[in-house]
């Protein structure tokens, strides 16, 4: 089975569509959306409609902090994020908001755990930024492999038999084996708002049989997506960071 992992779509229709087109060319059996369908971007209604269609076709969809904040008014966000959430709450229907609020916090299948942020306390939305964060997630669950998002920059952490952690920054297009008996945590890059310096949309392919994960980067029409953010009256910084990928 070949699984496509998409994190942090953030209402970016152009990036999401470009990734889905790329995935359609690569013989993928299952889609996993790792949370944050909405927030920041200008097309939340379209992205939610697409996600609901994918869900009916068997996709796994997780809840992110922006999805939750759209469904239930919640604080604790940066000014830009809060402004975007306020806008998003008006841009989606009550039905869509309910859909976002009903998404699961974590999903486990075989030896894999899908979650939006840190797995030790998914509802606290802690970033997995370094080896210590990754260790906390891995020690909190029994799954051999954890796939998460939230950070907006791809990274890979391997936990060895002697409890040491190997941090690694994946290279685009190079498949990395995640061999047993080691345990691994993959932080997936963002579809809709990359922050690792590369504005291209990111998604990951995990091949269950070969045990290999591959980072893919897809160039998309950033100018249009950025323009829409500006037209919608969302904070200017959200428009420019798409162009810079930071």
């Amino acid at each position: 089975m070949r699984i496509a992992l998409l994190a942090d779509i953030h209402a970016n229709r152009e990036a999401f569509e470009a990734c889905l087109d790329d995935i359609a060319r690569r013989d993928v059996d299952r889609l996993v959306l790792l949370g944050d369908l909405v927030g920041y971007g200008a097309d939340p209604a379209w992205v939610v409609a697409k996600a609901r269609a994918l869900l009916s076709q068997g996709a796994v969809i997780l809840r992110g902090n922006h999805d939750e904040a759209t469904a239930f008014a919640r604080g604790g966000m940066t000014a830009d994020a809060a402004a975007a959430i306020a806008w998003t709450r008006h841009a989606v229907s009550a039905e869509d908001a309910a859909f976002l609020g009903a998404l699961p916090m974590e999903v486990e299948e075989d030896d894999r755990l899908y979650v939006h942020a840190d797995a030790s306390a998914p509802d606290r939305w802690i970033y997995v930024r370094d080896a210590d964060d990754a260790r906390r997630s891995l020690e909190a669950c029994t799954a051999r492999l954890i796939f998460c998002g939230h950070v907006h920059a791809p990274a890979l952490y391997g936990l060895t038999a002697t409890a040491k952690l190997v941090p690694f920054k994946p290279v685009t297009g190079v498949s990395v084996p995640l061999p047993r008996p080691r345990r691994w945590l993959a932080v997936c890059g963002a579809v809709g708002q990359p922050r690792d310096g590369d504005p291209a949309a990111a998604w990951h392919l995990f091949d269950v049989i070969s045990g290999e994960i591959t980072l893919h980067r897809v160039p998309y029409d950033v100018a249009t997506a950025s323009d829409k953010v500006r037209q919608a009256g969302l904070p200017e910084s959200l428009a420019t960071r798409l162009l810079r990928g930071r």
Binding site: K164, F168, V171
Partner: peptide, 10 residues
């Protein structure tokens, strides 16, 4: 260079 270095951390 494009794969995790298991030796270095271990």
């Amino acid at each position: 260079a494009q794969l995790p270095d298991l030796m270095e951390e271990e």
